[in-house]
Design a protein around this nucleic acid. Structure first.
Length: 767
DNA sequence: TGGCCGAACCTGGTG
DNA sequence: GGTTCGGCCA
């Protein structure tokens, strides 16, 4: 019986190998020694990774010896699913596949004591660590106006990504902001340590520390993970790179997959050198290029190619496809952001009703999360279901973060940050004064804040009411913590514990729809715990919290739901859709204003555009609006320079029928776009109502209109200007006031943001 | 101690 | 347009 099964599996396997093209096959079969796979967009790299794992399993490698590091948990899950198809559920579930953070966090829980953490350490997300930074800055008396905590946290995080510790950072600080960041950095590290907490960066750094400090542990994991694979290698940072090098040292069975053209995370520490120098790091490395694209039409690929070839620094490769030519890439011009969204919704509606397409075939990609608003409104009006990735996700909501903080405190009473978050949620009558006494005491005694709550007798300054309140709170936490230690069911404990916090009752009494929503959200967390406990062999609250903390926005999007997907271009990496819209192609928005003067940043924006284009299989739409609301103001923008980088013979321009059209002077600096009039697939002639699109060339449409009454000034968002009094600055937006006056919002280098009426302020454009 | 109001930020992307 | 934060008052 066994033999038959093995034979069958073997047969399936061979079948799969036959599906691979020569390069893919080479990558799958190269199992020993270092391997660099340069995988162009849509070249089937997930298939290669999946079959490579299946192949290793067939060669007799045990599943737990394989470590596959992916960019998102979702990608890891999909990979496991596909492996299961080839080799069966059992083996697939034992493969170590996940993100750097989730895999390392898991290992660190086993090894926590070696680094003076406990296995129930808390994981702080960006928001948690920001609030630590704020607390520290307040205690040091730094003004948040002068030194934005966001920026301080950003500097600390990027130092950590480059593996620069607080002392080293202090030593190389070159200006006031950096010197102050250094001071905060030192305290930040102490604070997290005292809280038995790690931020996202610490998970990587502590893994490295562990491997450096304990050779026997390093040896253990080198033997455990005999085969290592890394996806999206172009987006690894210094810390990730170092951890991989250590783990792969010895056997050197490391296969990395990446595409330098899709490197879009430099801003968070990704180091493109990691992929460019792979052959230097591993001298006997084999390189395989996957250049055949299976995803997109020739038209889409041609557009992508013409864009990316403007970047200077890149590995040599040429994508090709045997897919059909496909439809031309279409550019949608809109009057404003609302109309842009309406046109997108209308196209989707049309495609669904006339070409029997599914809602899940469509994705709308944008540069900034703020753009989702108008799109959501338009889709709702068109009665189209949508799912939105990122933005205000479930686990970022206040009530959810409160529940999670309560749970964190339950397993980790050193976590003063969580304690502070929930102590007055609901209000327990402990104001800043009482909390101040308790914190002072904790600092003096060098104990966690929670311990001060347990020792209120030693804090004489407390008023009787506050004293009782603090003592009651400590007793309440202790009572439930003991139940956790006794090993009672975590689901039961969590349900009773959250009820006992008093939060649900407060919400019930509120009797508003919003409170109802929040209550339901809390219930959803509790049922998530139930779900987690049902799937896990050894469910713990720590495990649940870890899984939640490290979930990415993209991870909990449900691919089976039939809905239009809205997300940022960054989130779209690794995905594909039959029809893709890239919205908001405007100067100052995409590419973003501040990247215009920096060639490196502009190249990264261009790669992001390339990523967007190559998500599309069959249809690609690019859209822009002439004006849009940003910062609550109407801003005017030129079409993105990226549009000029696509050859005009693959493009087709479409202008939405404006409901209101306000004059705008013709822009003679741009050539008239190429217009194809013979394409009938797009404009539906059969429709009886007025067509939504017309073939008006954009310049013509303006020139037919009467000259503007109060003509638009020359100044554009993104430009650098000089003001006689305020000095040099960058234009944020140019706005027409209801009075008809034109106003510019300028961010000056020295004096901050100013609103200037162009009639009075003489601004000199300098770049 | 907590709630209300206006000012000032924001929107650059994420595990 | 939304959110967050600090100041002021009951």
């Amino acid at each position: 019986m066994n033999i038959i099964i093995v034979n069958h599996a073997d047969e399936t396997m061979s079948d799969f190998l036959q599906e691979l093209n020569p390069s893919q096959l080479k990558a799958v079969r190269h199992t020993e020694g270092p391997l660099l796979i340069i995988a162009g967009a849509g070249s089937g790299k997930t298939r290669v990774l999946t079959y490579r794992i299946a192949y290793l399993l067939r060669e007799g490698v045990a599943p737990h010896q394989i470590l596959a590091l992916t960019f998102t948990n979702k990608a890891a899950g999909e990979m496991k699913e596909r492996i299961a198809h080839v080799t069966g559920e059992r083996a697939a579930s034992q493969v170590w596949a996940g993100t750097f953070h989730s895999i390392f966090a898991r290992l660190l829980r086993y090894e926590a004591e070696h680094l003076d953490y406990t296995s129930s350490y808390s994981i702080y997300d960006a928001e948690d660590s920001l609030s630590v930074v704020k607390n520290i800055m307040n205690s040091m008396g730094y003004s948040q106006q002068q030194f934005p905590p966001q920026a301080v946290r950003g500097r600390i995080s990027s130092a950590k990504n480059q593996m620069i510790g607080p002392r080293e950072y202090a030593a190389q600080a070159s200006n006031l902001a950096e010197r102050q960041t250094a001071e905060i950095y030192i305290r930040y590290e102490e604070r997290l340590r005292a809280n038995n907490a790690m931020d996202f960066d610490d998970i990587l750094l502590n893994m490295i520390r562990l491997l450096q400090r304990y050779p026997e542990i390093l040896q253990k994991y080198r033997e455990r993970f005999r085969y290592i694979m890394v996806d999206e290698y172009q987006d690894t940072n210094r810390a990730q790179y170092t951890a991989i090098r250590m783990l792969a040292g010895g056997h050197n069975n490391i296969a990395v997959v990446g595409d330098d053209a899709q490197s879009i995370y430099k801003w968070r520490g990704a180091d493109i050198r990691n992929i460019l120098d792979f052959q230097k790091d591993y001298p006997n490395a084999e390189t395989v290029k996957l250049e055949r694209n299976y995803r997109s039409t020739k038209a889409i690929l041609a557009a992508a190619d013409s864009v990316i070839k403007r970047n200077k620094r890149q590995l040599d490769k040429t994508l090709w496809t045997e897919n059909s030519d496909g439809e031309p890439v279409r550019v949608i011009q809109a009057w404003d952001d609302r109309q842009e969204a309406a046109q997108i919704a209308e196209i989707i509606r049309c495609e669904i009703s006339e070409n029997f397409r599914n809602m899940r075939d469509f994705a709308v990609l944008y540069r900034t999360n703020a753009q989702s608003q108008a799109l959501e409104d338009a889709l709702r009006r068109a009665s189209l279901r949508y799912t939105i990735v990122g933005g205000m996700s479930f686990y970022k909501r206040k009530e959810i973060k409160d529940v999670l903080s309560y749970l964190r405190l339950l397993v980790n009473q050193s976590d003063s940050e969580s304690l502070l978050r929930i102590i007055n949620e609901p209000s327990r009558g402990l104001g800043s004064v009482s909390l101040g006494y308790l914190q002072d005491f904790a600092t003096r005694e060098n104990i966690p804040l929670f311990e001060a709550f347990m020792r209120v007798a030693d804090v004489p300054a407390l008023m009787p009411r506050a004293r009782k309140s603090a003592a009651d709170f400590a007793a309440f936490i202790r009572r439930f913590a003991e139940r956790v230690q006794r090993g009672e069911s975590i689901v039961e404990i969590a349900v009773e514990y959250i009820e006992a916090t008093g939060m649900p009752n407060v919400l019930r009494e509120e009797r508003t729809d919003e409170a109802e929503d929040r209550l339901r959200n809390i219930e959803r967390v509790l049922s998530n715990i139930g779900e987690y406990a049902a799937h896990e062999d050894n469910p713990t609250l720590e495990g649940f919290l870890q899984q939640i903390s490290l979930a990415a926005d993209i991870d909990d999007t449900d691919a089976s739901a039939n809905a239009v997907t809205l997300m940022t271009l960054h989130s779209a990496k690794g995905l594909e859709f039959p029809t893709v819209f890239v919205a908001g192609l405007e100067q100052g928005l995409f590419p973003l204003a501040r990247t215009e003067n920096d060639p490196d940043e502009k190249e990264e924006e261009r790669r992001l555009f390339y990523v967007g284009i190559t998500r599309a299989c069959k249809q690609l739409f690019l859209s822009y609006a002439e004006r849009r609301f940003r910062f609550g103001e109407l801003a005017f923008n030129e079409p993105s320079c990226f549009l000029d980088e696509i050859p005009s013979d693959t493009l087709e321009w479409k202008r939405g029928d404006s409901l209101r059209r306000t004059p705008k002077s013709a822009d003679a600096s741009r050539p008239a776009p190429f217009i194809t009039r013979h394409n009938s697939q797009f404009t539906k002639p059969a429709r009886t109502e007025k067509p939504f699109y017309d073939d008006i060339p954009r310049n013509e449409s303006y020139s037919q209109l009467p000259p503007p009454a109060n003509s638009r000034p020359n100044i554009r968002a993104g430009q650098r200007v000089r003001h006689a009094q305020f000095g040099i600055g960058t234009v944020n937006s140019v706005v027409e006031r209801t009075s008809g006056e034109w106003q510019a919002v300028v961010q000056f280098q020295n004096v901050g943001r100013k609103q200037l009426l162009l009639r009075y302020a003489k601004l000199e454009i300098i770049g």
